[in-house]
Amino acid sequence: MEFFEINVNNKIHQVEADPSTPLLWIIRENLSLVGTKYGCGISQCGACTVHLNGEAIRSCVYPVSAVGKQKITTIEGLSKDGEYSYVQEAWINEDVSQCGYCQAGQIMSATALLEKSSDPPDDEIDIAMSGNICRCGTYTRIKKAIKSASSNKKSNGNY
């Protein structure tokens, strides 16, 4: 067991954990932020996607000991003061979710993409999103939501 200080959603948290513990379980169990999901544990499904300095990473294989001073953002950190981010809003407007289990991960991957490339072409979207499985098959709606988020962003600003 070791002590770690990690910055999650702009807040410093102290956690005591085995250094090998994946960030996923620290977020879910030590910080009680359960929006980040477990799906496979081997970086194949994307349900656990969070941002590390703005980059989408799979938290199920990222040990807490590797976080250091880097900034973590989870799905709970996207909405500020009860307002929805432009990506979350697009997701609501396109009514993307079926079971909804994958959607936090999808939104984190989409947000990382749109923060880098505000109007990504289809092949860029394909690359960014193909690591996130949606077992319910909401892919066509996810694509629509990304496109509408991208045009909203151009008119509105960021998250």
């Binding site: 359960v34 999901k37 799905i75 996207l78 929805y84 009514d95 993307v96 979710s97």
Partner: peptide, 23 residues
């Protein structure tokens, strides 16, 4: 008519909804 998923807003915010989230 078309009415949005009543839990859509909670899903996109990552609220505790699922069995795995229960504490």
């Amino acid at each position: 008519t078309s009415q949005r998923n009543v839990e859509g807003p909670k899903i996109v915010k990552g609220e505790s909804l699922f069995g795995i989230d229960f504490q």
